[in-house]
Design a binder for these strands. Structure first.
Lengths: 124, 124
DNA sequence: TATACATATGAACAAGTAAACATATGTAAG
DNA sequence: CTTACATATGTTTACTTGTTCATATGTATA
């Protein structure tokens, strides 16, 4: 009888589907809140611009003032300043004032680590 | 005589300027090629979208097919597929076909590492 | 306080891009 | 080979965002 085989197949199909649903539900529970993932995306978005990456990389070892960066990367002072504001807001860089100049540097080791990880992936 | 003091100040100013220039030149030498930094920015740009980050995170532990992801994240099939194409092109995910479904998963440990690093920074 | 230099900010414009919708391709089974 | 289901892709649109230009703020010095 074909009926029996059909029943068996239907049974297996339903089990597989249930297993899928279990996994999907499990993933759903493990998934962080949307808010956190939104923040995470915002963080990477800041790294996701070649001008900002160049600026960040230029500060990998040394602190630099706005003018240094502008000269080094052949960018306008305005552009550098605008980008530094974004980097500042995202807590990727810190700064200190010395006379008329403002010196910027990477905020912490996380920033260096993230860049390094990305570099490894790119250099493959 | 004020002249002497002025000379001394000018001397110091020039020395400081020269030291700055040295540092800037040193940074310039250390800076990777623009092309590499461009690729690096492109990489982070892919992480820098909340939809793609959600998709990536959903695959943190398990492989998932397009439909699973769409249901899980309440996204249209089209949207998920478009984003997966971007993730595929950037070599952030791999996939295998099984019957009518296509199962996607993170391409390597770098991807996990980059996401984890970002998470640490966000969760501070 | 006036001047010069360094940096920051506001506004407008141009380029890039994610989502939606429609449609095409691929695959299994009758 | 036709139907149904899963995934992929092309196109348009609305929105986001980096740059430029002009201007403002901040700081040291005469």
């Amino acid at each position: 009888m074909a009926k029996e085989r059909e029943d068996r197949e239907e049974h297996m199909r339903k089990e597989a589907e249930a297993a899928r649903e279990d996994i999907v539900e499990q993933v759903s529970r493990q998934q962080p809140d949307d808010e956190i993932l939104y923040d995470l995306a915002e963080l990477f978005k800041v790294f996701g611009d070649s001008t900002r990456i160049k600026i960040l990389y230029s500060m990998f070892e040394n602190e630099l003032c706005v003018n240094d960066i502008a000269n080094l990367l052949h960018l306008s002072q305005s552009s550098v300043s605008h980008q530094l504001r974004i980097l500042k807001t995202s807590k990727l860089v810190k700064f200190r004032r010395e006379g008329k100049s403002v010196y910027y540097s990477l905020d912490d080791e996380h920033v260096r680590a993230i860049i390094s990880m990305g570099m490894e992936h790119v250099e493959e």
